[in-house]
Design a protein around this nucleic acid. Structure first.
Length: 484
RNA sequence: GCCCCCAUCGUCCAGCGGCCUAGGACGCCUCCCUUUCAAGGAGGUAACACGGGUUCGAAUCCCGUUGGGGGUGCCA
């Protein structure tokens, strides 16, 4: 391969079952939105091609890596329905391999020892005129190993390193722009760039699909691979970044990005993964909400867009509502369990599954998030409804006389009414009409008296489920409060 | 600063030189349905950043400008 064309896609780009991709998270935090999207695209591509997706845990930095997070990342991937092939590879188990590579580089003159501290480097850079980066101070000092010393890679002084990015096209870096970067830390542990250069060829990775934030590290790894004499023909595909409303890369500190948080908020994995697939990619026929099997079938890495994508919570929520409504009723009940027990505002012993199941279909078409479920049924399982002030003001406060009259009429009729949704609503309509109330005021006082809110499941069913005694009790309580 | 990248409705995608008086989705607005809220149905609002080329013809190709982002660690 001619110089300056390292990594350029030439003739035989692996495809089909030869495809092997990897998702390589660093266990320094939970799986976040960006990582999930990267994992998803790798997975879609692998499954589309009938190839393999392997996991590689990039934990060369022992100080930042937290082992318990690895398990959390696995669980989040599983939740999303992303499966992988074979056992995950841990870079921390492979230090010897990387050290050997560094030795090779040292022996061949591609790397050298350096005793400059970060402060030295910075100070000289400032003295030079503020241009950051290492100045090659130790390049020819022929230093040997020693405490506090790092190994740096000797980048070429001229020429360029280029590669064809599957989503971005040809990208070129002048080698002179690349500083002599550190490949082995002073504690003896090789950096991820070396690990990368060693692992990708060694693991047989054919396509490197990752975030655009890593694009600048690509020439360094390519140079490393070339110096190590390993195959440099991997195909790169850099995915556009996912950004916040200010168009900045999503950050763990600033933005709401933990996948675990989305799970706890009641998003469905189907919705999340469907939505994520649409960030940077779109199906040719424009049908956005569709089974994952179809997305796998239609997905093309080369169709991925180049510009960053805003993570739109509203659209995600809309998708989520769609998927919730699509659930079979029993499935909806099952998936709500977590919010009915672990996160419910009522004591567990007051919960009755059969009662919830009666209301569930009515709730199902009203929520966008599973976490909203308790709010629709809490009036049933709480000893007393939580009266929302605004709702009370709206239903009772505007025309107290009307509310009183309607409540009195309904109270009396309910003593003997047939306790089923339809007749119960008929009572409300009859008295409302008889009293000459505007339609808006027919059910509102009853609803707020019994459920505490103006918004909720259909009133007839709510009343039926609560039972005559409890409804009468709540109606009287409200009536009393209204009299005061 | 330097390097790299990006640029179609508010947002996410479609558009790959004529099919574009630019299409879909989310949002927003209106109407229908409705004794709550949703859901559902019917409409509507809204974009090719700017300037030069190339071409018979450009949202689509090229150059520049502007704007935005990423990187610039002994993190990945």
């Amino acid at each position: 391969m001619a110089p300056g064309t390292i990594g350029r896609v030439t003739s035989a780009v692996p495809s089909g079952s030869d495809v092997r991709v990897r998702f390589a998270p660093a266990p320094t935090g939970y799986l976040h939105l960006g990582g999930a999207r990267t994992a998803l695209f790798n997975w879609l591509f692998a499954r589309q091609q009938g190839g393999e997706l392997v996991l590689r845990i990039e934990d060369t930095d022992a100080e930042r890596s937290r082992f318990e997070l690895i398990e959390v990342i696995y669980r989040a991937l599983e939740w999303l329905g992303i499966d992988w092939d074979g056992e995950p590879v841990h870079q921390s188990d492979r230090s010897e391999l990387y050290r050997a590579a560094a030795d090779t580089l040292l022996a061949s003159g591609h790397a050298y020892w350096c005793d400059c501290t970060p402060d030295d480097v910075k100070a000289r850079a400032e003295a030079r005129g503020g241009k950051p980066g290492y100045d090659g101070h130790c390049r020819d000092r022929a230093l040997g190993p020693g405490p506090g010393r790092v190994v740096r890679f000797r980048t070429p002084d001229d020429g360029e390193t280029a590669f064809d990015d599957l989503v971005r096209g040809p990208i070129t870096f002048a080698n002179a722009e690349l500083e002599d970067f550190v490949i082995v830390r002073s504690n003896g542990v090789p950096m991820f760039l070396v690990a990368n250069a060693v692992d990708d060829p060694e693991m047989g990775i054919t396509h490197i699909v990752r975030g655009e934030d890593l694009i600048n590290t690509t020439p360094k790894v390519l140079l490393l691979r070339e110096a190590l004499g390993v195959d440099t023909s991997a195909v790169y595909a850099h995915l556009p970044l996912i950004v916040n409303e200010k168009r900045q890369k999503l950050s763990k500190r600033r933005d709401d990005v933990s996948m675990g948080d989305y799970i706890e908020r009641g998003y469905l994995p189907e919705a999340m993964r469907n939505y994520l697939a649409l960030l940077g990619w779109g199906p040719p026929d424009g049908v956005e909400i569709r089974p994952i099997a179809e997305i796998i079938e239609l997905f093309r890495l080369e169709d991925v867009g180049k510009s960053s994508a805003f993570f739109d919570l509203k659209k995600l929520a809309s998708f989520n509502g769609h998927y919730i409504r699509e659930l079979p009723a029993t499935e909806f009940v099952e998936r709500s369990t977590h919010w009915l027990f672990d996160k419910a505002p009522w004591p567990a012993e007051r919960f009755h599954a059969a009662t919830f199941e009666r209301l569930a279909p009515l709730v199902q078409e009203r929520v966008e998030l599973l976490s909203e479920v308790p709010g629709y049924v809490d009036f049933v399982f709480l000893a007393d409804p939580v009266i929302d002030d605004d709702s009370w003001a709206k239903a009772m406060g505007k025309s107290p006389d009307n509310a009183r009259a309607q409540l009195d009429a309904v109270l009396e009729a309910y003593e003997t009414a047939t306790w089923e949704a339809e007749p119960l609503m008929a009572v409300i309509a009859e008295s409302g009409a008889r009293l000459g109330l505007p339609k808006k005021q027919w059910q509102a006082p009853v609803r707020v008296a019994v459920t505490g809110r103006t918004v909720g499941p259909p009133l007839g069913e709510a009343l039926e489920v609560l039972g005559r005694d409890e409804v009468l009790r709540r109606l009287r309580a409200a009536r009393e409060r209204l009299a005061a």
